[in-house]
Design a binder for these strands. Structure first.
Lengths: 230, 230
DNA sequence: TCTTGTCCAAATGTTGACATTGACCCGATT
DNA sequence: AATCGGGTCAATGTCAACATTTGGACAAGA
């Protein structure tokens, strides 16, 4: 008897490898928003050819992390309020759909995994870490929902926003926000509970609100930094 | 005095050129769903290098027109009912958002252009053409709405579905559907009118229904072909 | 007959060299 | 001073050759 699904062991090319490394470098702050990424530099640093780097950069551009123009190279995206509004608007629409579809199809095992993720988040509320772990769990929680929704196109659309969301939230971490953490966990707890009850009606509203809540927390912080004290 | 916006004359590379040609070839039926696209063949046919073809294929893959696997080449997507359900589910969510946002920001000039597009569609209802023109106008109508929404990310997400929608609807044309045309125009007319009144509340519902209506018409036809007469 | 192993051809993945472009500098001009 | 025009060069766009992988044909063994 063959297993129903096998862990995908698909081999990856150098381009994907390069994309991963560059993405990490951006998240680590090595390339700040607005910085130019030169193909030759990256090719030498990663010890691959320019072609592979080029392909990797194209992937990151489709993730929205980079912007490129004809013969003018690629740069890391800026973090303007407009960009944030755009990303979170679309994300809210996707999240609404994903959560509803997930409610119809989610399995018991997936529900358990969601619970344990929320539990792990709960531990991070009081932890004195900088919040990177909490952020990773946050994204992971939503990844699980998109997977549970079982819609390839929906997942693709989400992956076109995921990295941007990560980058945005990362900037929020730097700005420091204490009391937001507990509310974050509470919201995820609510979503997980509603999923278990398969309360589609309420989920549509709550999922959208959850995203808008994150957006407000982010935009508020950014506005405070730009205009206010420092 | 310089014009506020200039027709984007940004120079394009060979990759985009190749992508356009290949996309057209697929829409023209030269490459049927499921057909394999070989890089060397295309490179010779288009008289560009394999690298450019490769980049173009990657673009079309991100549009969802192609599927590719490691060292196994790229093929035109299949037209399964599941795929259609996926695409139209996400499209409904996006369309809902786009129409609402457009209602807030649409200008008088844009409204006029929408009207004239619907008018042109009306002429195609009775025309004896095969419906390609009607389909092009349909897509154009929705393009205008996404542009009016003024959200770059939303537009990107739509462009990740657009070609697939086109391909799906194209198959519907071949199956022939007479009375659907008039209903199609009527629905677009309603949306245009609601946009003019900026009736956001109703628009959210109608825009979603419009997509689901198109989906039903399509799935119904396909199911009929697969199981029914022929 | 079914499985397993080896080889081969065809296609893709990868690379470094060559061609082209756009930003920058700087002097001439109005 | 501001603008225009040409030259320069670093960086990207493009290409053709080389390396690697896949799937199938085919034969040997259980």
């Amino acid at each position: 008897m063959t297993p129903r699904t096998i862990g995908k062991a698909q081999r990856r090319g150098l381009a994907e490898e390069a994309a991963d490394r560059i993405r990490e470098a951006i998240f680590s702050g090595l390339f700040a928003p607005g910085a130019a990424l030169r193909e030759v530099e990256l090719a030498e640093a990663l010890d691959v050819s320019r072609g592979s780097v080029r392909e990797g950069l194209a992937m990151l551009e489709h993730e929205g992390l980079l912007q490129s123009a004809w013969h003018r190279g690629t740069r890391v995206i800026d973090l303007t309020v407009t960009d944030i509004e755009e990303v979170y608007s679309v994300r809210a629409a996707l999240e609404r759909l994903a959560t509803c579809k997930a409610a119809e199809r989610v399995t018991a095992a997936e529900l358990d995994r969601l619970d344990s993720t929320v539990a792990a988040m709960g531990e991070q509320v009081t932890a004195r870490s900088e919040g990177h772990r909490l952020l990773a769990l946050d994204i992971d929680f939503h990844d699980q929902i998109y997977h549970a929704a079982g819609n390839r196109r929906l997942l693709d659309a989400w992956q076109g926003l995921r990295s941007q969301v990560y980058l945005f939230q990362l900037s929020r971490i730097r700005l420091g926000d204490e009391d937001y953490r507990s509310r974050l966990v509470a919201e995820h707890l609510e979503i997980a509970a509603l999923l278990r009850n398969r309360d589609t009606e309420t989920l549509a509203r709550v999922a959208e609100d959850h995203v808008h809540s994150a957006r407000r927390a982010l935009v508020g912080r950014m506005a405070g930094e730009l205009t206010g004290r420092r």
